[in-house]
Simulated assay, not measured.
Amino acid sequence: MNYSRFLMTSVLLGGLCSAQNFFELPNVSEKFNVIVTVESCTDNQCSGKTTFDIYDKSSMKKYQTLSSDNFYLDLNENRKPALDSLKKSVVFDDFNFDGAQDIAIRNGNNNQESPFFEVYLNDSSTQQFVLNDELTNLVRSNSGMFTVNSDSKRITAYLKNECCWSLTSEYVIVPERGLLKVSEFEEDTRDSKKVTTIKREFIDYKWFTKTTIYPREVYFKEENNENTERN
């Protein structure tokens, strides 16, 4: 049976909602296909209560249904999910580096008015996505979704205060203990004449701190040169 036809038939038979607020997301994950049913949609966006029917691509069986009370998704000119918005609303990745795909779903905004996500880890023993409070709180206390580096096995969170102050924090996951912060980089550009950076590293169970103050014009010249070299 054609996979897309199978999913569409499953949704229609289940009577989830009208097709107007129904979207299939086949490319958000290598392993899973997602059917999104949103409470309210206009010509260019959807928002509100949302259900996510997650299907295993290999077996074509429903894996799980998750929900969001305050989902948001931009639509393109064809009234399909806009790719940039989709990447900021449904995120599949291996957040705890155990080899299984996990999922984060947008659910409103956090205290800094940044997109808030609820993070679910894939429990191999139960074959279910389970809400992880620690990673969800990490999103809540920072400015949007964190990123993961599968090579270094580190999680990076970003916190910004308007234009002129930012904090980048890196974490590792300690088995049976959870998140452990191992570094911070603070950048303060609020002074009109200088820039202050503070680098903190957790090494051998101790924190080491290095504070550097740059003339403003020197700091941004060096930063621009680094960006040019990277490009």
Score class of each variant (00 low, 15 high):
Leu16Thr: 13
Leu180Asn: 14
Lys62Ser: 07
Ile198Thr: 07
Gly178Ser: 13
Phe52Cys: 04
Tyr63Cys: 08
Tyr214Ser: 00
Phe202Tyr: 12
Leu12Phe: 13
Phe129Arg: 01
Ser125Pro: 07
Leu13Thr: 08
Lys153Arg: 07
Thr51Cys: 13
Arg79His: 09
Ser59Gln: 08
Ser18Phe: 06
Asn122Glu: 10
Gly15Phe: 04
Asn70Phe: 04
Tyr171Leu: 07
Glu223Tyr: 15
Thr147Ser: 15
Ile35Cys: 12
Gln64Val: 00
Ser125Phe: 13
Asn149Trp: 11
Phe92Arg: 01
Asn78Glu: 06
Phe129Ala: 02
Asn110Arg: 03
Tyr205Phe: 14
Asn76Ser: 07
Leu12Trp: 12
Asp84Phe: 06
Glu229Cys: 06
Ala157Glu: 08
Ser4Pro: 12
Arg190Tyr: 15
Lys193Met: 06
Asn231Met: 13
Asp151Pro: 09
Thr197Glu: 04
Phe23Ala: 05
Leu83Glu: 14
Pro175Tyr: 09
Lys61Ser: 08
Glu30Tyr: 10
Asp74Val: 01
Ser29Pro: 07
Leu7Trp: 01
Asn109Gly: 02
Arg177Trp: 14
Arg230Tyr: 11
Gln45Ala: 15
Pro81Thr: 11
Tyr205Thr: 11
Tyr205Val: 11
Gly15Ala: 10
Lys88Asp: 02
Tyr158Glu: 02
Leu7Pro: 01
Pro115Leu: 03
Asp102Glu: 00
Thr51Gln: 10
Ile203Trp: 05
Tyr63His: 12
Met1Ala: 15
Thr211Trp: 01
Ile155Pro: 04
Glu77His: 14
Val174Ile: 11
Ala104Met: 02
Thr212Asp: 15
Asn231Lys: 10
Lys57Ser: 03
Phe23Leu: 07
Tyr3Thr: 05
Phe220Asn: 05
Arg216Gln: 10
Val195Met: 04
Ser166Gln: 06
Thr228Pro: 09
Ala82Pro: 12
Phe220Ala: 12
Ile213Cys: 09
Asn149Val: 10
Phe95Gly: 01
Ser68Gln: 01
Lys194Ala: 10
Asn78Met: 15
Tyr214Leu: 00
